[in-house]
Design a protein around this nucleic acid. Structure first.
Lengths: 210, 210
DNA sequence: GTCTATACGGAGATAGAC
DNA sequence: GTCTATCTCCGTATAGAC
């Protein structure tokens, strides 16, 4: 029986990705997770090996399709015009996020939350395993940014892309400094349409800044 | 004996803030922390109550002075000109970060890392306890942003401030999406001077975007 | 080949001896 | 104030049931 056909594996992955995205790697309990998925704890170790490997499986399943879709969407938008426009690159990212929300990620931010978790936790093991898979895609995206910002030197382009993507991932993950520091709710950071509306002009302006 | 005079408390706090900032709340082990601080595990429970309370103590000690310093610096810069300028507000934040690096935070990003941890973890207990302390300060900072961006409606100002502060905290925390997803090092996200150089024009442009 | 039952060491928490 | 003993829950490993 192939992995994809196994009901047990699917049940584990479904509950696991939710837990990892919402609570993070360390705060996720294998026992609670398997209880919720109605699966024995040891079944996870049989199918995946250990907690790290399960997390990796979740990441690989969700991040690769997302990043690839972003790249494709960027290329597609770029072809509509004579030159690559910064606003098209940003909009491509946003479109994929909104499409994910419509299609399957109703809670919004599953993939983006997983990525921001990776960002702050700097888990070396995961990075070494994941880097290989996405390096080429990220390289292609950088190439598009270089075309979109021809007046800037390459070091600056890398930094702007770095800040732009960090901001986009964090915004769609619903991460909210103001909510963390202040009492009343300032903005509805969990609403993807609202996020899209306000983050696009901000990031585009940041990219093309003098 | 007052808390500030206790050597044990000081030893615990010093090691704890390092561990919490670098590894996060859940990945921090009380046993490892106390071993490193050369203090008995139960001493933490005696002086602070539990792990949550210790984390709160660390946050209160570091975040309040930082945020207050940012507000003061913003007000100070604002008084130098007839109107409040967006670039002054951003530069005020950056100046405080760089001053922290020079003065005591040699590893850089202790405070900013703690805040980004709070952002992604959404730990309700901490928020309820902390929100009260910083609400007024954040409110004052919002007031400055409203003065600096008079042509924008208040909803937009809140969103721009939200995105700007998120980006600033994340940048100085050294959080790096590209490093999380790709193999080779794209930018030196851990170098505060480099961060300052590239993040300021980006965020200022984002704030004043049409 | 799949999965269950169970045991082990380490974590945070706490009561109570000193 | 300090520290030991102990409780419960965690991730993990493994033997064996089906």
């Amino acid at each position: 029986m192939s992995q994809a056909d196994s009901l047990t594996i699917e049940k584990i992955l479904k509950v696991a990705e939710e837990h990892f995205a919402v609570h993070g790697y360390y705060a996720t309990s294998m026992r609670q997770l398997t209880r919720e998925a109605d699966v024995n704890v040891a079944a996870v170790h049989y199918h995946f090996g250990n907690k790290e490997a399960l997390f990796l499986a979740v990441l690989k399943r969700r991040i690769a399709p997302f990043v690839l879709m972003v790249l494709d969407n960027m290329k597609q938008k770029a072809q509509l015009h004579a030159s690559v426009r910064p606003e098209d690159l940003v909009q491509a990212f946003v479109d994929v996020c909104l499409q994910y929300v419509r299609d399957f990620d109703r809670e919004a931010g599953l993939v983006t939350r997983l990525v921001t978790r990776l960002m702050v936790d700097e888990y070396k093991v995961f990075r070494e395993q994941l880097a290989q898979e996405y390096s080429d895609i990220i390289e292609s995206i950088l190439h598009l940014f270089e075309q979109a910002l021809p007046h800037l030197d390459k070091e600056t382009v890398r930094w702007r892309m770095h800040i732009a993507l960090s901001t986009l991932f964090n915004s769609f993950a619903g991460n909210d400094v103001l909510k963390a520091l202040a009492r009343r709710e300032w903005v509805n950071a969990k609403n993807p349409e609202q996020v899209a509306r306000y983050v696009v002009p901000f990031v585009v302006a940041g990219l093309v800044a003098p």
